[in-house]
Write a protein that binds this DNA or RNA. Structure first.
Lengths: 254, 254
DNA sequence: CGAGTAGTTGACGATTGTCAAGATGGGTGG
DNA sequence: CCACCCATCTTGACAATCGTCAACTACTCG
């Protein structure tokens, strides 16, 4: 059993080190027993294919999910049947935090490509967190981080123009890939132009045009879903609103 | 001591019944002792004046805050000095959840008018939640709810036109006031037109024009900061995107 | 190989931002 | 108490951005 624990701990470290849940798995304050118990409630590597649903709006919420490989989109459907993309989830990112409130999912989630996910029954996690203060604290932090994310959304959609939005989107993907050990400047967009435009609050045509223009300007090399970022610094400038020589900021001063 | 508990419980019920923390205070699973302990860590009714800061970006985070009377705006300042309004907080609403992650505030908060707030040291709340599973659960729910709020923001800023945004804003205030026992159709806007337009991602002039037009159309009666909503049903329609006879939806179908 | 979906490009128009000027109202000092 | 002033708000004219419509191309999947 002791040997079992050691093996389990190593397995988790390998499996989770690139995962947003690593904060739950790896902190020093978790004893090997704690880790084993956490390990025991995690269901690993459920496979999904492109178009498979993880859950639909209104489904009962039972487990948090983490993308291992692939990508997921979450979206909400309005009365008239139109979708609103809420986010794209890359390896290591969590899905389902919004559903804790009413034990019911408030959005749908669909695989954008072949995808592996880990699942954690929330009941068990909650119980475990009650017994393990450091885990409880990590959970509070995790939820808080997600709340802080709203700031970026407000910046993106409330103040930025179309170029800035697309650049921000590309840089966001770049940083997230980089953080997980993938290339920061060469990756595949698993989502369609429709999904991108929907997420950014733009028309498909606008996104398409901006991709083309960025390419003409030598900032990116985009061939369909394969994208290379050729000038990260400039893209970051555009994302931050430093258009040409000082684009008119839409901000205001108190 | 037993009598003390009863008094304390009643006091809290009165103080908190219109408060978003009521979920923490009132659930049946809290024993009178738990309630008393919660009561003991809450600091009540700190007074603020118009323009006073609750905290600035980067300040260490120590306590969650709830508006008792008045209103607060939270905002983030970008490099160029321009502000982005993140939200308006009315009586019963919480401030500071985004700061748990790094024990540091990620936005500033300022009183829009004379305002009273309750404060809860987060350390103590966290400790208490460890000892009280139902409180822990309520805290998870509270944080989750805030995360779910992001959906509305994305709908508002990503898909809606200017009329829809203003109508959505007014209806949001209306519902929140109504939920706290105030009038749903007659209230004061404590925030300036600048703040409103900033929050909605529009120009001040656009907001002003829409207020005027809504007034001409008999939907509202707005005299400076005092607003009366004369046709809630119609405003809700506009907020939902049912412009005139079916405004062009910017959605798309999968 | 053919059909359908996804993506691109162009022309045009609507919505909304920008600039400028004027109106309103609250607050302060005479 | 009145008058003035400054900030806030409103209104108008114009321009820019971005969405819409339509046609065309390219890729994917049977």
């Amino acid at each position: 059993m002791a040997g079992q624990n050691v093996i389990s701990l190593e397995t988790i470290k390998v499996a989770c080190q690139n995962c947003s849940l690593s904060a739950l798995c790896l902190p020093m304050t978790l004893t090997p027993e704690d880790v084993t118990r956490l390990d025991n409630i995690i269901e690993r590597n459920r496979p999904l294919h492109r178009g498979d649903y993880l859950h639909s709006e209104g489904d009962p919420f039972e487990r948090l999910r983490v993308v291992t490989t692939g990508s997921i989109k979450t979206y909400s459907t309005s009365d008239d049947g139109s979708e609103r993309i809420l986010g794209f989830h890359l390896p290591g990112e969590l899905i389902g935090l919004e559903a804790i409130e009413n034990s019911r999912h408030r959005c749908s989630a669909k695989a954008l490509e072949t995808t592996l996910i880990c699942e954690i029954p929330f009941d068990a996690l909650e119980q475990l967190s009650h017994e393990t203060p450091s885990l409880q604290h990590q959970l509070y932090r995790l939820l808080s981080r997600e709340i802080g994310h709203e700031t970026e959304i407000l910046m993106l959609l409330g103040k930025k123009g179309a170029d800035e939005r697309v650049a921000t989107f590309l840089m966001s993907l770049s940083e997230r890939f980089k953080g997980r050990g993938f290339s920061a400047s060469d990756f595949y967009l698993s989502m369609s132009r429709f999904d991108i435009s929907n997420y950014l609050g733009l028309a498909v045509e606008t996104v398409s045009r901006i991709f083309t223009r960025f390419q003409d300007e030598g900032l990116i090399n985009a061939k369909r879903k394969h994208v290379q970022l050729l000038n990260l610094a400039r893209l970051q400038e555009i994302a931050d609103g430093n258009h040409h020589k000082g684009r008119s900021q839409r901000g205001y001063h108190s």
